[in-house]
Design a binder for these strands. Structure first.
Length: 469
RNA sequence: CGGGCUGUAGCGCAGUUUGGUUAGCGCGCUGCGUUCGGGACGCAGAGGUCCCCGGUUCAAAUCCGGGCAGCCCGACCA
């Protein structure tokens, strides 16, 4: 049955729908300074889940967490020409502190290649010190003129990995490993987002990198969102910061470095990749609350039953919330739907009389009457099914909205509603410029089988073309 | 940087043209009661430097001058 809508519908006005979800699911607010963001507890809980899953994968890949300063000497940026050029428009610079003008202005980090490079140079002496694999969880500042909560804010949270290796091959292999085993794996298996993987065109590459790997997700309005990046920095930063090591025969050599990151933008991606007209849809493996137990009535027997169901589910490893029946049923249901909780467990007098509860999946709204003695296993089963279904639905949607084309004009047309796929060598620099003129871009370049190439010079590569956030 | 628009309760707005008693409305909020299987309702309440400064006037949210802030479009940047 159609209920009066709490949100602007996606088809009506997608950006407005997004803002409504962020506000009504209590995820974030605008901060007092334009472009800043207050992340509210529910939004932060989602970020903490993202952090936990990615951090575990990062550690499996061998990197260790560390922390570097927020303030970076301005002179550091000048050392790598492309890097400084790329970042200077969005730098926030402190020129006055401690009651006086600073002798050297201090940059608020937009990314940490430079400071970390400085310290890598200090810590690396010998080939025995390599590879050096670091990661940090931090906030960064990139001054934004057109901010949007989670997607583009002047300050945001992220993870940035920085590594140094003794060879180009080792560095490239590590960047690829992070790209696939941390980011792609997390996106596919936790966030249920089937990302297109590939490398960035030279034009879209990170400032200072020799190659950038990317995971591009399709949002429900058909636009692309870059969900992670992994960069091969070659010897650019090693040269700028003198990151050298002695090889086995005693000669000094420059390191090869990488950097890679994913940010709170992923929360925005989560909203737009799965959300529907009823609000957010959180995949069960990511959900801070996997099941909400709703007391249909605020009555002692019902509340008691809810408390015992809650305890049993927690014992069974399900993270739960308990809704104690204050306020109207419909309103409470709607509020939990907006928050995207995967499973709603309704417990009312009618259920209890029959020795059952009613479970409702968030993704398809299907109702399941479940006997009390099969609570935990059924709950687990429905969560797992929903996790799979979300990925499969997103994959089908992505493939349906991806059109193979043979000309730039066709690519532009396809990009109005989805993605276009086209031979990379048929686009060329000129074609890419024409795309950019109409706010369409080459999101990534991949092999025909969809895997990530190691260089843009491989033959027969295809480009994924779309509008983007 | 150019053009357009807007600042009134937590949010969204009306009122300003034509100055006039106590500045309203919707949502939200507080209390009580009835409700509760898909966004409930009644009654009673709380909440305002009408962006700021100055001027005109018996009287300014309203008229005049100056300032500040924000939004949209364009340009720039990626």
């Amino acid at each position: 049955m159609a209920s009066p809508s709490a949100l602007t519908s996606q088809s009506d006005d997608f950006p407005r729908w997004y803002q409504d979800v962020v506000a009504k699911a209590e995820m974030a607010d605008n901060g007092p300074v334009r472009g800043t963001m207050v992340i509210r507890p529910y939004g932060y809980a989602l970020w903490e889940r993202i952090q936990a899953e990615m951090d575990a994968r990062i550690k499996v890949a061998g990197a260790q967490n560390a922390y570097f300063p927020l303030f970076i000497p301005q002179s550091y940026f000048a050392r790598e020409a492309e890097h400084v050029e790329g970042f200077s428009p969005e730098l926030a610079v402190v020129t006055y502190a401690g009651g006086e003008e600073l002798a050297e202005p201090v940059v608020v980090r937009p990314t940490s290649e430079t400071v970390i490079g400085e310290f890598m140079a200090k810590w690396i002496q010998s080939y025995r010190d390599l590879p050096l694999l670091l990661n940090q969880w931090a906030n960064v500042v990139r001054w934004e003129l057109r901010p949007r909560l989670f997607l583009r804010s002047s300050e945001f949270l992220w993870q940035e990995g920085h590594t140094a290796h003794d060879s180009y091959e080792d560095a490239a292999a590590y960047a690829m490993r992070i790209h696939l085993e941390v980011y792609y794996d997390f996106l596919a298996n936790v966030m249920a987002v089937p990302a297109y993987v590939g490398i960035k065109s030279p034009r879209e590459r990170f400032a200072g990198a020799i190659n950038s790997l990317t995971c591009e997700g399709m949002m429900r309005d058909g636009k692309a969102l870059q969900m992670s990046t992994s960069h091969e920095l070659g010897q650019n930063f090693a040269r700028a910061f003198n990151i050298v090591y002695q090889n086995e025969s005693g000669q000094s050599e420059l390191c090869h470095t990488t950097s890679w990151g994913a940010s709170t933008r992923l929360v925005g991606g989560l909203i737009m990749a799965h959300g529907d007209d009823r609000g957010l849809i959180v995949p069960p493996r990511l959900a801070p609350i996997q099941a909400v137990i709703i007391a249909v009535r605020d009555e002692p027997e019902v509340l008691e039953a809810c408390a015992s169901i809650d305890a049993r589910l927690r014992d069974g490893g399900v993270s739960t919330a308990l809704d104690r029946g204050r306020g109207s049923f419909g309103r409470r249901v709607t509020d939990w739907e907006i928050k995207g909780v995967p499973l709603r467990i309704e417990v009312g007098p009618r259920d209890l009389a029959g020795g059952v509860v009613t479970m409702v999946r968030r993704d398809d709204g299907s109702k399941h009457v479940v006997a009390l003695d099969r609570l935990a296993t059924t709950c687990q089963g429905l969560l797992e099914e929903q996790q799979r279904a979300l990925f499969n639905v997103a994959l089908a949607r992505r493939d349906d909205a991806t059109t193979d084309v043979t000309s730039v004009d066709e690519a532009i047309e396809a990009a109005q509603t989805g993605f276009a796929r086209m031979a990379w060598d048929q686009i060329g620099e000129l074609g890419e410029a024409r795309l950019n003129e109409v706010a369409v871009s080459v999101r990534c370049i991949q092999r025909a089988d969809g895997t990530t190439p190691v260089s843009p010079d491989e033959p027969d590569l295809v480009a994924i073309v779309a509008k983007s956030y």
